[in-house]
Design a protein around this nucleic acid. Structure first.
Length: 494
RNA sequence: GGCGGCAUAGCAAAGCGGUAAUGCAAGGGACUGCAACUCCCUGACCCCCGGUUCAAAUCCGGGUGCCGCCUCCA
């Protein structure tokens, strides 16, 4: 079996054949850095992080490029509003972006170009498009000149999004102000002349800045060449961003541009798209204040990347319980397996089946729910083995299973490290959040737990059970173990 | 108005022509003073109607419902 990928261009899942055997070049549209990222952004970058990891697992040498858009209307507006420079603003949010991505366990792409450092390439590409007759120049509003891409001169326009210009006109005409300078209202800016006070760069058309789409065309070309394998982003970029990128790039150099277009589905809330404009979004920081980063990452991988993913406390709570369960099982398995440390174990059927299942799941359009199912079966086998009285079986399943969990972990970017601290962090972060030190809630819990310990000591089980019931209603579960009566917060409503 | 996607057990989610992965929840059992944790067992014929096929959740046609894009948006 070979790798199959859903290609937006063909609307089909098709066999992946890279331009150069064994290598994959991949470009993913990065963020416009004027604000914190929300969960929708998190999904894109986690998904493509896993895709890059998966490709590497499958043996490809991957070159992953992801840009920062640091010149844009929204950036200028926000910087003006804040009374700071665009550079200060963008640098701040790039730093914040890295903090979020690091917490979520996303590897850095191989190249992370910024628009502001690629003006030479951008101007050159605009010039090439003009020279080849696919763009025209009009007078700008404040002097200088604007350059527009002429979609009527480019026959394949609409191929990616599957719509004709006529289709678009019907809906767009009532919402978009007419610009009489444009030949076709759907023509889009390649270069915009500077308005007073805006950041601007020199060009053959006077001082100005790039239009929205050209940066990705120029930067992908510079770092991956005029033709490359994978181009990714959220579904909302299909039109107009990617459609326009495709048109510009092909108009500039005739090369194939991206061969496979991958688009991830939206994160939704109550089935509606999470977006800035609707205001129904949570930033990554909002979520990480309540849930462990591994929980958010796990949750983001529970649905196939092309499908919508509905965001809710319930889903995150379920993911919490699951991640905790897996981490605890793995930690326990490691503790049990430690005594066999260094002893070799023959690969068993379980391990090789899991390896084959992992590969198959990844080759099936990076099917992370399937990978999670493989992991679940593996962890279940490990859980059974821990209980097993058969020492030989136990040893082979635990050691073999743990080593294969690592292979899966490296692809998912989950459970890569030591599982014991992860389990501890999940419980402790919930404890700190719900029962902070010196809080009335904490004192309440400690008081009841002490009373219960006392009740049990005198074998007053009726009283002990009553206290446990009370704690449970207060969101606390108590477990009587060899180490005594331990308590921890319930991870979400059950 | 145009274009596109989705509809699978209580919930979430795989499946891409050969009689439905996985997770959560729920029920039963083992364990436990009782519980919790853990382990074992239990669940759906796939929105509706037609069609193609020896065979369809999976393909085709028609409905219904939800969502997205066509304006900045991951």
């Amino acid at each position: 079996m070979t790798l199959r990928i859903t290609n937006t261009l063909t609307r089909q899942k098709q066999a992946f054949v890279p331009l150069v055997e064994g290598q994959v070049s991949m470009y993913v549209c990065g963020v416009t850095v004027y604000d914190h990222c929300h969960v929708g952004h998190a999904r894109v970058y986690v998904v493509f992080d896993v895709i890059a990891r998966a490709l590497r697992h499958l043996g490809y040498a991957v070159r992953y490029v992801r840009n920062f858009t640091d010149v844009d209307d929204k950036i200028i507006a926000r910087a003006n509003k804040n009374g700071e420079s665009c550079d200060d603003l963008t640098n701040r949010f790039i730093a914040a972006f890295y903090e979020d991505m690091d917490l979520l366990g996303c590897h850095r792409p191989d190249v992370e170009p910024r628009v502001t450092t690629h003006m030479v390439e951008i101007v050159a590409m605009v010039q090439a498009i003009v020279d080849r007759g696919h763009a025209y120049i009009v007078a700008g509003e404040f002097g200088g000149q604007d350059v527009y891409f002429a979609i009527d001169d480019f026959a394949p326009y609409g191929a990616l999004s599957g719509r004709s210009q006529d289709d678009n006109q019907a809906g767009a005409s009532d919402r978009v102000t007419r610009d009489e300078r444009k030949r076709n209202q759907a023509d889009f800016a390649l270069w915009k002349s500077a308005k007073p006070g805006e950041p601007a760069w020199d060009s053959p058309w006077g001082a100005g800045r790039p239009g929205w789409h050209i940066e990705c065309s120029a930067m992908s070309c510079k770092h991956l060449g005029p033709a490359f394998d994978l181009h990714g982003g959220g579904k909302d970029l299909i039109f107009p961003h990617h459609e326009n990128e495709l048109a510009q790039s092909k108009a500039a150099h005739d090369a194939e541009f991206a061969r496979y277009w991958l688009h991830n589905g939206f994160v939704t809330i109550d089935s509606e798209k999470m977006s800035k404009s609707l205001g129904n979004f949570f930033t990554i920081r909002d979520v990480l204040a309540r849930f462990h980063p591994a929980v958010l990452r796990y949750y983001l991988l529970t649905a196939h990347y092309t499908q919508p993913l509905n965001f809710s406390d319930k889903s995150l709570e379920e993911a919490s319980r699951r991640v905790l369960y897996i981490a605890e099982r793995l930690a326990q398995a490691q503790a049990v397996a430690a005594k066999w440390k260094g002893l070799p174990v023959a690969a068993d059927g379980l391990e090789s089946k899991a390896a084959a299942d992992l590969t198959e799941a990844l080759q099936d359009d990076f099917n992370t729910p399937k990978v999670l199912a493989v992991l679940a079966e593996l962890v279940a086998s490990i859980g059974q083995a821990i209980e097993s009285k058969d020492d030989a079986l136990k040893r082979s399943v635990l050691i073999g299973g743990l080593s294969h969990v690592q292979a899966i972990a490296q692809v998912l970017g989950l459970f890569e490290g030591d599982p014991a601290p992860l389990a501890h962090e999940i419980v402790e972060s919930a404890r700190e959040r719900l029962f902070p030190a010196d809080s009335a809630q904490l004192i309440w819990v400690q008081e009841l737990v002490q009373q219960r310990i006392a009740a049990r000591a005198t074998k007053d089980f009726a009283k002990a059970d009553e206290l446990r019931g009370e704690l449970l209603r207060g969101g606390v579960e108590v477990r009587d173990t060899r180490e005594g009566s331990l308590w921890r917060p319930l991870l979400g409503e059950v």
